[in-house]
């Protein structure tokens, strides 16, 4: 195998891991709680921009850049996304499911407008470059850095996965499922359905913000065109194709869908003449749409399907 291929493979898998974190966040919201989040691209963008603004050194044309350490950027990105999700959730989580979908979709549109128009903060349609990569100076070559970052992402995904599995198997996770399956019964048992849904929504969105921060500090620049609505639909396809209600499924879905997306992109650039690039791009998006619809129609359980979760104490009767 040539070096170029290995290098591309590492890059590809890094993107899969980052999108995998977003998919895990959505899986908590949709798979385990039944919350319809149509604004994934928005939360992902909030994390990305917050991190970029916190860590990039001050510049004359941008008002808020701080040049603070990477860890502060990650923490800040998660905190700001959590706050945004909390405010949005507070206003909309009581509503019927499809109204939550409309509201979150609106959030994403609004955030996109802000990233495009609030130039002094976000750099407008150009975005901005120079986002520091963690410990970049310690590595001799971009490839060595990419390997390091890949290992870092693996660790983060493992941590997120472990944390989610743990809380989902706790009493908290069982209440979450109870709320999803039969809200009235859960309320009758004295559980505040709204509060549990809000918590799940905020945690899931925070993970999306974390992923956004990890993404920009990997590629080193931020641009509104990395957070278009298509991101939301790609993540949905990942969770639904993989199997909602199963964290392994979300990660497997991230790999499957991104593999199809990236390879269809390569195939189209090879086969479609440059004059028809727009049509080529359209085919790629149509594939995502078809994947989503066909999975819903013919394989609603996804590749793996929902995992049965029983309390650790259930056998001890």
């Amino acid at each position: 195998m040539s070096m170029g291929l290995v290098s591309y493979g590492v890059f590809f898998l890094s993107v899969v891991l980052i999108l995998g974190i977003v998919a895990l966040g959505l899986n908590l919201q949709w798979g385990y709680t039944g919350l319809f989040n149509a604004g994934i691209a928005g939360f992902y963008a909030i994390g990305a921009y917050t991190h970029s603004i916190i860590t990039t050194p001050p510049r004359a044309d941008l008002i808020a850049n701080m040049g603070l350490p990477w860890v502060v950027g990650i923490a800040g990105a998660m905190a700001v996304t959590a706050l945004a999700a909390w405010i949005i959730g507070l206003a909309t989580i009581r509503l019927r499911g499809d109204y939550l979908a409309i509201s979150t979709f609106g959030i994403a549109v609004t955030i996109q407008l802000v990233t495009l128009n609030f130039e002094a903060l976000t750099g407008g349609s150009q975005g901005f470059t120079g986002i520091p990569r963690p410990l970049y100076g310690m590595f001799g070559s971009p490839f060595a850095f990419n390997l390091f970052y890949f290992a870092l992402l693996l660790a983060v995904v493992a941590l997120v996965y472990w944390g989610l599995e743990r809380i989902l198997r706790s009493p908290w996770g069982r209440v979450l499922k109870a709320v999803r399956e039969d809200e009235t019964a859960a309320i009758a048992l004295g559980k505040s359905a709204i509060s549990f849904r809000l918590q799940s929504f905020v945690i899931g969105s925070t993970l999306m913000g974390l992923a956004g921060a990890l993404y920009v500090s990997f590629i080193g620049f931020v641009s509104p065109f990395d957070f278009l609505p298509i991101v939301t639909f790609q993540i949905w396809a990942m969770v639904i194709v993989g199997g909602s209600g199963n964290n392994k499924g979300a990660l497997l879905g991230a790999l499957t869908v991104w593999l199809i997306w990236a390879s269809s992109g390569v195939a189209i650039t090879k086969l479609v003449p440059p004059a028809h690039a727009a049509q080529g791009g359209a085919i790629q998006v149509i594939l995502i749409g078809l994947m989503l619809v066909l999975a819903l129609l013919f394989r609603p359980r996804g590749l793996i399907g929902e995992e049965t979760m029983v309390s650790r104490h259930a056998d001890e009767r």
Partner: peptide, 12 residues
């Protein structure tokens, strides 16, 4: 709500 997911897919 899978109808709503499907609607987004159809729209794409």
């Amino acid at each position: 709500l899978s109808m709503v997911f499907a609607a987004f897919g159809v729209a794409l």
